[in-house]
């Protein structure tokens, strides 16, 4: 099948890759950009392990074709830590609160929570649970993940004890 060139930025870096139109964004990032931090858990849009940010929105990269990302600004888990590897407050909160075990779902949860933390509207318990229920984790029972995001939100001034009505 004919390949097409597609251009976008990932974590601020310009990329031009040649992909088949049927290749998903998730595969494009992993296979053609070498960014294997984004994990594929179901490839049918349920588990959310492959969540990345596209133009500021959380997106399941298995439900979008690579060619649809033409001109987009993409962010992946590899862009969260500082260049020297220092964890950002959200990553550090996951570390301190046992927000991961096998680590496979973690990049998706981190990107989903990044969107929640960066959108500029403080959130509370109910909304956090609602948003994070988009993704599946099979190891933690979720409490560590919720504790992590709550701690990061507090640290970043994005937490409200009672969710806005």
């Amino acid at each position: 099948m004919t390949k097409r060139e597609v251009r976008f930025t990932v974590n601020g870096e310009a990329r031009a890759v040649l992909v088949e139109p049927r290749r998903t964004l998730g595969d494009t990032l992993r296979e053609d950009c070498g960014l294997t931090g984004t994990h594929l858990g179901c490839e049918h849009g349920v588990c959310g392990a492959c969540t990345v940010m596209v133009d500021g929105q959380p997106v399941r990269s298995c439900l979008m074709f690579g060619v649809q990302a033409e001109g987009a600004e993409i962010r992946t888990v590899e862009g969260l830590a500082a260049a020297d590897g220092t964890l950002n407050p959200l990553q550090r909160a996951f570390w301190e609160n046992h927000g991961l075990q096998c680590g496979y779902c973690t990049p998706g949860f981190l990107m989903l929570a990044t969107w929640l933390l960066e959108r500029g509207e403080p959130f509370g318990e109910e909304e956090m649970r609602h948003v994070l229920s988009s993704n599946l984790c099979r190891c933690t029972g979720y409490q560590g993940i919720l504790d992590s995001v709550r701690q990061a939100a507090r640290e970043l001034g994005q937490w409200t004890e009672s969710a806005p009505g």
Partner: peptide, 23 residues
């Protein structure tokens, strides 16, 4: 004790089979 396993996994630097299989 926080886990020594976590920092690379949190940076997306883990190596699962699908990552090794590329190519």
């Amino acid at each position: 004790l926080p886990r020594t396993e976590d920092p690379p996994l949190l940076r997306g630097e883990g190596r699962y089979v699908a990552d090794i299989a590329i190519g």
